[in-house]
């Protein structure tokens, strides 16, 4: 029954104080999004302990602010906005704000639009995955966020623009830069 509800409906059920299903609704919502949220944070921070703290804080904020959630809004947009704010706060604390705002200056032409190799076996797949994570961790934050939100968070460029409060075109180009860099990094697996 509950698994047929979308994220917004689950949040709405979770908000209901007298609904006996509110706890189960939250559990369902948590199960759906724990992976993407966790990966978004861990891949943004590159520090496991801080990432765990931030991840926990993100869910605590979702729980505490559930009454402020508007069902007309998309849950993931709302949650990723909170996550991004937490990350910004974290970068401020650790003095990495410049890193966050730094834009990638590399020209798109430099990044050849190369075809992506397909993993031939499990070993290669693991190697590729490791390379992918390493490349993501080296991306500038703006590109990293655009890439993670698009690929793992399943958000549209428009939604990412809303979350990051940037123009649509800028987000689109950040995403393209990120994808091209990753393709380049995975080139030698071809």
């Amino acid at each position: 029954m509950l698994d047929q509800l979308n994220d917004e409906q689950l949040m709405s059920t979770f908000k209901q104080k007298h609904d006996i299903n509110n706890q189960r609704a939250f559990e369902m919502l948590y199960a759906r999004h724990k992976g993407p949220f966790y990966r978004f944070i861990t891949k943004s921070i590159n520090n496991e302990q801080d990432a765990h703290e931030l991840y926990q804080e993100l869910w605590f904020k979702i729980i505490n602010n559930k009454d402020k959630f508007n069902e007309q809004q998309k849950f993931t947009t709302w949650a990723y906005t909170i996550a991004r704010r937490l990350l910004i706060d974290q970068f401020r604390k650790t003095g990495r704000m410049a890193e966050l705002s730094r834009l990638d200056n590399s020209e798109p032409d430099e990044l050849a639009d190369t075809g992506l190799p397909s993993p031939e076996n499990e070993f290669t797949a693991k190697q590729m995955s490791r390379q992918l994570n390493q490349t993501i961790s080296q991306l500038p934050h703006s590109q990293r966020h655009a890439f993670l939100l698009k690929c793992d968070g399943e958000l549209s460029i428009k939604e990412i623009a809303e979350i990051t409060q940037q123009p649509h075109e800028k987000v689109k180009s950040q995403y393209r830069y990120a994808v091209n860099k990753i393709k380049l990094a995975l080139e030698h697996f071809k």
Binding site: K34, G35, D152
Partner: peptide, 28 residues
Amino acid sequence: EDQRITDLLRADNEQPPKALDDAILKYA
């Protein structure tokens, strides 16, 4: 190719530790 990158990213399927899950569910 974008889809293949996405698949590769998701194949990693990194998940939070169980202790974190428990703490969050308990808090809720």
